[in-house]
Structure formats: C-alpha cells, structure tokens
Design a binder for these strands. Structure first.
Lengths: 340, 340
DNA sequence: CTGTTAGCGCGTTCAT
DNA sequence: ATGAACGCGCTAACAG
C-alpha cells in the first residue's frame, strides 16, 4: 500500500540532469546555475519530494536525531524537561527519540544501546540510575551525552543538575524561621542523586539549628500514593516518639507532598495549623491544591533547553574544539505559599 | 571525537569471511554453519558491534520508527497516552519520535512532513487540530496513520477515540440523580472533537431532564488557570442570573475542575455542599485534591497501547491484507468521589 | 557550472 | 554453506 518514495533520481530524470546536481540545487550548496536551480526546486514541489533523512544521515554520519531517556513520561517534572528539550531540538532541525526506563537501570542501558544503533548524534538522560557504568560503554561509542540530575560527571559525560542541597536548605531555613521545630522528612526510596542530596540537606539543617533529626520515613515511591503511605507511617512513628504529630513535614517532592496533604486531611489534621508541609519542584498543580504548597521552583523547562544546547555544543565539538563546562549547576527559588 | 562505528565489514575481515555471511549469521536467517555463526556472534560481542538501523532501514525500507504527535507533553493526559504508545512500541522493537505541536495546526503539518522525511513506518496523532487536510497529503505518501481523539476518519486514516458524549451523559445522570438542578458547564475553547462532544452531551442531558442549559462558560485554556478563570466568570454570571451560585459545575476536564475547586475555595464556597464539581479523565492527582473529584476514567494508557497495535497492523497490512476497523470507540467509566 | 565515480552500512539477489 | 555483485537514497570528491 505504501507509495514509492520520490527520490532525487526521479527529479533528475524529469529535469534531464544528474542526481548530484539535484542534490546541490535543493540544499543550496555548491555551484548550480540559477536557472536549473529554480527548475529543479519547482519540480520538487510539484511532485511532492521529501528528502530522505535516513539516506542523508547514512552518508553524512549525522542523523540530526538525539535520544532522550526519562524515568517516566507520566511524571510532570520529566515531561516538562522533555518539552524543553524537544522545543530546543526542533529549533535546530533535530528530532528526538523518547523512551522511558520505568526506573529500571537495565532498561536504561538497553535503551542507550538502541539509540546507538539508531545512530543518534547524542543522548540526554534525565535522572539516570546507571551512573558510572556508562563510562566504559561511552568510551567505545564516543556518543556525546548529557546527564540531567544524575550522580556524576566523567570525561566525555557532561552533567547538568539542580542544586537540591541548597533547595532543601532554603526550605528548612524558612521552616525554622517560622518557628517549626519538630520537622520530619519524607524521602524517596529511589537512590538517585536528588534524593540523597535533599535528605542530607534536611539532616544538616536540623543539626545546624541544634534540632534532632529524629523522624525520617522512606516513601515506597515518589508519587502521590507514596507520599500518602509515608505520611501514615510517619504519623504513627511521631505518636510513638512524641505522643504528637510533627510540626512540619518536609517532602522529597511536590507529588509526595500532595499525597501527604491528603493523608493529613484524612486524619483530621489541619495544614499548616497542625502540621506544615513543603514540596519540591513547583509542578503546575501545587498552586491549586489546598492549601497551596510552599516549594522550590526548579527551572524545568529551562533545564531541558540548557541540556539540549550543551549537547549541540558537544556534537559540533567534534570539529571545532572549544571550552565546554563539565558540569552546570542550576539554582531553584523558594516559593512561599500557605502550606507553611 | 566520535569513534568510527564497527561494521559488519570489520567483523568479516576479522573472521575471514565475507560481509553477507556476517549479516546472515547475526540475524539468524539464511544458512550458515553453526561453527562460523558462533564464531561471528562471539566476535561481534567482543568488539562491541551494534548494527546500524539506519543502514538497515535504507535497504529494507522499514525504519522501525513511528512518529507520535501530541499537543503538549506537559498535559498529564497526553503524556500517559504517549507512555502507552512507547511501551507497546518497544515491545515490538520500535522506537518513537515524539513531538509536540503546542496546539498549532501549522506546526502539526510541519511535524508530519518531518516524520515523512525520517521515513517513519507510521504516525500517531493525538487530538489533531488538522483533520481533513491530512487526507490529500497522506494520499501521496501512503504512510499509515492513526488519529487519537480527533474529528474524523477517512480512507487510509484510522481513528481511535473515547466516547466523550457518553462520558458526560454519565456524569450528568449522576448529578441529576443526586438532585442537582442548576448545572453549569465549563468548556475548553479549543475546537477539538472532545470539546464539542462533551459540551453537546451537557446540553442534551439538560434538555432531556427538562432543565434549562443556561450557564456555559468557555475557558481560555484547558489547564488549571483556565478552569479558575472560567469559574470566576461563571460565578459572576450565576449571580446576575439567579442571585446564587450554581448547584454544580461540570468541567471539560480534571485540570480545569481542579482550577474550579481552587476558585470556589477562594470565594468561600464549599464543595460539594454549596457547589458540586465534576472533572473528566481521572488523572492521577484527582484522587488527592480536596475534595477528591468525581470524574470519568479514560483508559489513557490503554488507548496508547491500542493505537500502537492498530498502527502495527496497518504497517504489516502492506503485505497481508486483512480486515482492520476504521474506527474504534473506547468507553470510560464514571468514578464517583466526594466532590458531588 | 555540471556529470562521473565512489561509498555510507546493510540486506538481497544470484552464483558457486 | 558461502562469496560476488548490486542497490537502498543521498552526499562528497573529483573530473571536465
């Protein structure tokens, strides 16, 4: 059922020229007489010619494709990052392959291999779970790669991440300044860099303020339910520990915080009067839940754009060698709303 | 900086055989002696060979890629559909190009052309704004195409959509059965099929129940803010009309409904005591807002899976011609929560 | 300015 | 069972 593609050969035959001439005419490079160029251009439009980027990529060794790997599209954080990447990519005639790992390191590596097979010019991985194991593989392929919010940066692997440590420090300073003392933390069980950093920031901030970092619960996942379940456990532990709920709950991210709000509500506790709650990311819905969440606004879209720009630099760097920063740190800002 | 790819020629040289033999050995087709097959397979692993799907696609005329077009990644509805598509695609060794239109029909067509240039085997478009204009273009290219939640179905264009009309009917029956009478509707201004259908269902349901469909507001967009702004207008109009708020607000989707909840709260109105609210889609967060939303659960993930399966059928249909449904209708289910 | 030749990496005939 | 030759659609290097 598929129609045969019209190729430059077809045009060449119709125009009575050779196919390289058509190629030159269409991409505007090389010397072609204005007359034949116009004739060819018009002919191409008439018969509906679309150049095969596959064939072109094979010879130029440049596919104008990049691979993007995220843990899950459904996560509002990652989908906004991806949107930033895609927009910036298209501005540069690039298309993106998108794949989700479902937080499985094995799948992540498998996807990277697939992308290599598809001859992508570069790869962006958001919240990688693999880390070091890329190094050896990359050495072989030489594919430029940018890690977003991952653990580490090696030679050849460039990294962009948000300063999560500082983010939670801002949140904690705010909470402590408001007089909250028994501040519990809900972490995300997944061993990503962000999780480690944020938890450490909570711990250190408590120490610095001479408050005991006594109450910490690992959520089963980083989503709404994870936050609700963790909160249930947390309240039980608080009861055992203090015979009272905590003053505030500092959450790994917004989705978990929203789950926490729901659980507190279910247990008849008012926010922020009984228990304050904070999130992280500033996803769109945080402004519309009850109460609106105090959180850290990460420049998600901008992070995607930045990652793509860095990748493009790396791709072109094959020829023109300039200085490229190994790691870029982005800063978020505290957004105070009525949950604290 | 990019390393040279290792090709089957390299393996052939090392193994002392010809490249076609390597090709046959690696893809397991054609007769090759077990001995050389093993030797070649092992060699391929050792030197880290990854077949070039680009080159393969050029000769087989099958790229094992599909293009996916969505209005916006950031929309939780579309990102879940996309996730379903991607998972089903990968199960069949397919990769997906993902692009977002930002709700711009011109961009949608441009993206489709790009995909054609990339020789995708098929295209899935979610919530297309273009409709009929695809027909002519498709005729030329013959690319199999599946429209998700779009207006129409033509020859060659297959369509999967959710029965939005029935969905809102279920919501309305529920509201009317609960005794709500003055039921207002908030629509999404964008002229997509879903919007038209849902609004019509509200209108008809009111008529059938002998209630005047008096209060309708178009939101500026389908997101949280859009719902909040529309609700503000709506309450003002209700005041002018009835000197009272409506009994219930039926919203185009969940995000707008969540915006509505926030605005009602801001105006000191209780849900559902003062004003009931309903959504549509059953996105993840609906269960965790206050109050949890009554809504219609669309099988988002399943719709993505189904679309991909249909597309695969169409792709293979080039050779084996069987019966393929032109349109598939999916049914959602009413989920009753405490917002009504 | 244009045509000829060559090759990107692979699969698919045909021979042998 | 294997190798030689060819082509997918395109661009690059040279001719002329």
């Amino acid at each position: 059922m598929t129609k045969k593609r019209v190729s430059i050969k077809d045009i060449a035959r119709l125009a009575g020229v050779s196919s390289p001439t058509v190629s030159r005419a269409l991409q505007g490079r090389g010397r072609v007489s204005t007359l034949t160029r116009e004739r060819i251009t018009q002919l191409a439009n008439e018969i509906g010619y679309t150049p095969s980027l596959v064939a072109r990529g094979l010879v130029t060794q440049r596919s104008y494709c990049v691979g993007v790997v995220v843990p899950s599209f459904a996560d509002p954080f990652h989908s906004q990052v991806a949107q930033g990447i895609e927009e910036e990519a298209r501005r540069h005639q690039y298309s993106i392959f998108l794949a989700n790992t479902d937080v499985d390191p094995a799948r992540e590596l498998e996807i990277a291999r697939t992308f290599h097979g598809r001859q992508v010019d570069g790869i962006i991985v958001s919240s990688s779970r693999v880390g070091n194991r890329y190094a050896a593989w990359l050495q072989e392929t030489g594919i430029p790669m940018v890690l977003l919010n991952a653990h580490v940066a090696f030679d050849q692997i460039h990294s962009i991440y948000h300063d999560d440590y500082q983010g939670i420090c801002l949140v904690m300073q705010h909470l402590i300044a408001r007089g909250y003392r028994r501040i519990a933390y809900i972490s995300n069980a997944r061993g990503v860099r962000a999780s480690v950093e944020r938890q450490r920031a909570w711990f250190d901030s408590m120490q610095v303020a001479a408050l005991p970092p006594e109450l910490l619960v690992n959520g089963p996942n980083g989503r709404f339910h994870g936050g609700a379940i963790a909160t249930k456990q947390l309240l039980a532990q608080a009861q055992a520990l203090w015979q009272a709920p905590p003053d505030a709950i500092c959450c790994y991210n917004d989705t978990m915080a929203i789950g926490a709000l729901a659980e507190l509500r279910a247990q008849g506790l008012k926010t922020p009067t009984d228990v304050a709650v904070t999130g992280f990311d500033d996803i769109d819905v945080t402004e519309f839940v009850d109460p609106p969440l105090t959180t850290i606004r990460q420049p998600r879209h901008q992070m995607g754009v930045q990652a793509m720009q860095l990748l493009l630099t790396l791709i072109d760097d094959r020829t023109a060698n300039g200085y490229v920063p190994r790691t870029t740190v982005m800063l978020g800002e505290l957004v105070v709303r009525s949950s604290t």
